[in-house]
Amino acid sequence: MAWRMPHEGDPHERTWMAFPNEGPTLGDDPAEQERFYAAWSAVANAVAEFEPVTMLVDPVQAARARTMLDGAIDLVETPVDEFWFRDHGPTFVVDDERPGALGAVDWIFNGWGAPEWASWTKAAAHARFTAGLVGAEVVSSLLVNEGGGIHVDGEGTVLVTETVQLDPRRNRFADKERVEAELARTIGATKVIWLPRGLTRDYDEFGTNGHVDIVATIPTPGRVLLHAQQNPEHPDFEVSHTLRAFLQEQTDAAGRAFEIVDLPAPETLRDHEGFVDYSYVNHLVVNGGVIACGFGEERADAQAREILEAAYPGRRAVTVDARQIFAGGGGIHCITQQQPALTSAEATR
């Protein structure tokens, strides 16, 4: 059995999400909560224009979800506490030696390092629950990990961050060798690239301690889209330069040096909490499209769409305002998870 995580640009069966429920990351202010629900729904409705969407919904939110979501979106009622589905849902994998075999990696999820504010016991059951819904084989793992902590090229390369998988709050006794062995077993990684860190805001109380999916992604094998903060007043200006220099020294699983494409940050530097981590890297690739984060900046949002459409030829980029999602600790990629279509060599990269 040789599991492999497909590239995000390979054909999808559908996208999975979870509808927000009351809790720490939803906030206490009713107006803010409504903006949260609206932003989540806007993402789901945008994805539904390109491919099927299934949404896990806590029964207490079912009526709200039916009102706010496109009627084509499938709703499945189940208990929900945390709702950042990329992180607590399954990571889908395939077995090239068994056409039609679908696996679902069930990482251990502890709320991004078991912070005091997090509530995750219901969310931790979603990977197996989802696997059961689609008939996927559960691939159990003892690694504390989240889907936002990995990005793959589908050919053996995976990007991770030293401050996530080696976080002692997640994996107290882990070292790189143990993590790499588990990533090889579960997602077919043959080359693990360890970014030294993530973006500054991501180390705040409600951050993930450096998820890679807000920093860098691989649109096609051999190429990296890298978050580029261009204002020296922002601490991520130095972070961007450090990560670019690091990636210039790396090679992928096939031995290729990376072509690095900058994806400039918007001009906004701060919100009421401090320096923002607004990043266009945190997009979702869908069948025929890209769902891009928007930050209320017409020029910057348009530039990001142009870069994304060039990086994913043949796809149309659509912007969804993601500022309220980022205020909660993540972006569009963080709240979605793709299920690969069980086809062989029909990748549309």
Results as ranks from 00 to 15, higher is better:
262 D>I: 10
154 G>Q: 05
162 E>Y: 09
242 T>H: 14
8 E>S: 07
14 R>S: 02
334 C>P: 11
255 G>Q: 12
286 V>T: 01
171 N>G: 07
6 P>A: 06
180 E>D: 10
245 A>L: 12
217 T>M: 03
161 T>W: 09
285 V>I: 03
320 V>D: 01
178 R>E: 04
252 D>N: 14
9 G>L: 01
340 P>N: 10
118 A>G: 10
39 A>P: 05
249 E>M: 13
138 V>H: 13
187 I>M: 02
314 G>C: 07
334 C>N: 05
236 D>E: 10
77 E>A: 08
50 F>M: 03
339 Q>S: 13
302 A>P: 00
271 D>A: 13
249 E>Q: 15
2 A>F: 11
105 V>W: 13
263 L>T: 06
306 E>W: 01
310 A>W: 04
251 T>Q: 15
263 L>H: 06
38 A>L: 14
335 I>K: 11
127 A>Y: 06
332 I>V: 11
160 V>W: 08
136 A>D: 07
91 T>A: 14
240 S>I: 04
179 V>T: 03
251 T>M: 14
22 E>T: 13
130 T>W: 05
51 E>I: 03
254 A>V: 07
285 V>R: 01
223 R>P: 08
213 D>R: 12
269 L>H: 10
168 P>T: 03
292 A>L: 04
88 H>Q: 12
249 E>G: 10
150 I>E: 05
205 E>T: 09
299 R>L: 05
42 A>H: 12
115 P>I: 09
67 T>N: 04
27 G>F: 01
54 T>F: 04
54 T>I: 01
103 G>A: 02
28 D>M: 11
94 V>H: 07
46 A>D: 03
123 A>C: 09
106 D>F: 11
64 R>C: 01
191 K>S: 00
167 D>A: 04
184 A>Y: 03
314 G>E: 06
30 P>V: 02
187 I>H: 01
229 Q>C: 15
276 V>Y: 09
92 F>Q: 11
278 Y>N: 11
58 D>R: 10
114 A>R: 15
296 G>V: 00
137 E>A: 14
90 P>Q: 05
322 A>N: 10
62 A>E: 09
217 T>L: 08
120 W>N: 13
256 R>L: 12
211 H>W: 06
47 V>L: 09
47 V>W: 07
37 Y>E: 07
330 G>N: 14
281 V>Y: 01
69 L>E: 00
136 A>R: 10
186 T>I: 00
132 G>C: 04
191 K>M: 00
209 N>H: 12
256 R>H: 15
179 V>S: 07
274 G>H: 14
216 A>G: 05
64 R>N: 03
6 P>N: 07
229 Q>S: 11
63 A>L: 04
298 E>V: 02
288 G>T: 04
51 E>Y: 06
57 V>E: 02
43 V>K: 11
21 N>Y: 15
344 S>Y: 14
131 A>D: 05
38 A>R: 15
252 D>L: 13
307 I>T: 03
299 R>K: 10
331 G>I: 12
107 W>K: 06
69 L>Y: 01
126 H>I: 00
195 L>C: 06
72 A>E: 00
156 G>P: 06
189 A>H: 03
172 R>D: 02
240 S>E: 03
51 E>F: 08
137 E>V: 13
38 A>F: 10
290 V>N: 00
269 L>T: 09
170 R>N: 06
330 G>T: 13
138 V>L: 12
217 T>R: 09
313 P>M: 04
35 R>F: 11
238 E>W: 15
112 W>I: 06
326 F>Q: 14
311 A>R: 02
21 N>I: 02
187 I>R: 06
